[in-house]
Design a protein around this nucleic acid. Sequence first.
DNA 1: TATTATACTTAACACTGTTATTTTTGTCAA
DNA 2: TTGACAAAAATAACAGTGTTAAGTATAATA
Lengths: 215, 215
Amino acid sequence: MSKSDSTRAQRIKTKSLERREQKKLKLREEILSAATELFLEHGYEKFSLRQVAEEIGYSPTSIYLHFKNKEELLFMTTLEGFRNFGQMLQTAYEATNEPFERIISIGRAYVKFALEYPVHYRLMFMQDSDFIYKQLPDCDGSIIDSFAILQKAISEALEAKVIHGQDELLLPTLIWAYVHGIASLAISLPEISKEHAYDMLELNKVILISGLKTS
Amino acid sequence: MSKSDSTRAQRIKTKSLERREQKKLKLREEILSAATELFLEHGYEKFSLRQVAEEIGYSPTSIYLHFKNKEELLFMTTLEGFRNFGQMLQTAYEATNEPFERIISIGRAYVKFALEYPVHYRLMFMQDSDFIYKQLPDCDGSIIDSFAILQKAISEALEAKVIHGQDELLLPTLIWAYVHGIASLAISLPEISKEHAYDMLELNKVILISGLKTS
DNA sequence: TATTATACTTAACACTGTTATTTTTGTCAA
DNA sequence: TTGACAAAAATAACAGTGTTAAGTATAATA
């Protein structure tokens, strides 16, 4: 057999493999999108693999060819939420140059995300931590960066002496706790409306101005 | 038959009924304590009625003679936690007469409870709200009072003009969000230690002094 | 066309909460 | 003490769950 034959055969083989892999990837995406839909609709508690399988028209065991188990599927489902989250915070960071206003901007974006994607937020920061931390090693670093943005903004505000404080880690974590508290309380308790949450955020800003700002 | 006979028969009947009811109540308590133990040990996710049944040596269906369903049993299990919680806040309230210090004291007690009883706290304020709110009508008012204590302390601080602010509801809810944020973040994320949480609480106090206090 | 790897399904296991039905137990009056 | 009756408890069953091992089609390769 000639050299060109050999390469053609090789090309066909490669293309074939590629086609099959894309088909597999397509099914994976189908599972993922069905899972996301069902998860957002029915929530964490009622989310089931068998229901996802029924939705896409495959047997439940087929899902295991694409995901290790239910936990991983659910995690991959929220990964999109994580990316959205990071992007929203980044945009909020870039929205202004004034260091203090930046922190406020990030906080607002944080709460906005939580209230717009409560099901995702719940899974990300309110559910059992194991859930996230067990899978973190296997995925890109699009998660930890979220906190890093806030931390950076606060560091810069400290350096610019716009706010006062000493600890590099304690203050970011505390401010994180502030917005997380507002967000998660609003998600958990029905009597706290979105407006109420945003009002709290506004009052929080006033307090932080007196409590943190130098000027 | 004489009158005394009649009353004796009645007395026996009453006593008998009483005895049976106490026996029933005792089993109920047995279920409750086994449930609490298993719940605290294995957490919400792994808690199962059948395991409780096995623990007490009865068939699973027997539990339904004492509790409407799993949800109610779990709720009754946390009721004790709620009572502890309310009492801790009340004690914290009474610990000092200085209005601002009172708020700080309550906040500290709040976080302390959350860190000491994380499983209870999770069920109380981090789990699906429906869980609590569906059962609230059927039980005594030992729950709502928890927030009332904080609200009262803040109202008094406002009246005494020790702190400034206007809204009667917004500020208490925000301060609740502060402590809840610190507590729930510490519970959810393994990298936040108890000491870290208490340090945050301390820094929070410093900020609140500048941000809220008048003097 | 036969072989072999891949995709997929079936069947099964060990669980779950919950309900209807049946059995056991204990109490009461005759 | 026996028979009727009510309460307590157990069995069996239903409809689900996640997950694994084993089997069957399907499609690619030699």
